[in-house]
Design a protein around this nucleic acid. Sequence first.
DNA 1: GCTTGACCTGGAGCGCGCTCCAGGTCCCAT
DNA 2: ATGGGACCTGGAGCGCGCTCCAGGTCAAGC
Lengths: 132, 132
Amino acid sequence: MRNYYTPGEVAERFDLTLDTLRYYEKAGLLRRVDRSPSGHRRYRSDDVELLNMIRCLRDTDMPIARLREFAELIREGDHTVPDRLRMLQSHQERLNERIAEMRACQAVIEHKIDYYLGVLAESSPDPLKETP
Amino acid sequence: MRNYYTPGEVAERFDLTLDTLRYYEKAGLLRRVDRSPSGHRRYRSDDVELLNMIRCLRDTDMPIARLREFAELIREGDHTVPDRLRMLQSHQERLNERIAEMRACQAVIEHKIDYYLGVLAESSPDPLKETP
DNA sequence: GCTTGACCTGGAGCGCGCTCCAGGTCCCAT
DNA sequence: ATGGGACCTGGAGCGCGCTCCAGGTCAAGC
């Protein structure tokens, strides 16, 4: 029973390419990952756990640079928990703002959709009762 | 009484730079804008109206290429209303999906925040009743 | 022994959406 | 007449986040 994950497994699990996975490591989002005797990477379950977080944060547009900061805090040890907490909390706030912004845009777009629907209704009115 | 807007006015109104405004024009998001005798741009109110839509769509991550398609439909005339409608509707759907995705990520992040709060609570428990 | 496939490396390249620049024109106020 | 400010042009450059590549190693199965 293996206690590690191969690059292929990890890539598939998070829907990342091998290139991206290596890029994340180079960029400092992951520690230097363990290797098999032949040099292949072996991801531990805590790497995978971190990647899960990374994917969430990336998917919500946290830039790589900030992700690296976060990862560095983790590597520095338990005394950085308050800083990590602050990072996550402020990210949540930004996210709330972003979602609100998107909702506002949606409203404007919806308005335009209604307008277009109106235009169509007028140009081709009730097909059973055409205007004379 | 002027019936046009200067580049500076438009840029400020939509919080864009003059460069971006010109870029949008080059990219085909705007028609070739009118000019003053001295060559300065003069935006009409329908340009401004379109820009308002463009800003909404860009702010919700519609790529420039798709925006150009949309703008071209407008230029082609009223018979493209159904196509425009479809574009906006499918954009709204994508947006809903995107927002749902972000909410899902937020839940994961919130979970982590709670975990960190737990860690902190444990490492520095009730300050008035320290563990012996 | 040979092929296949998964993985390795360092480094170059790319697509997107701007952003910046040099050098110029025009107009208005001092 | 001079200076400042708003704007013009074409084209180069940039930051980000990957993505691709050539050339190589290794392990397992036929």
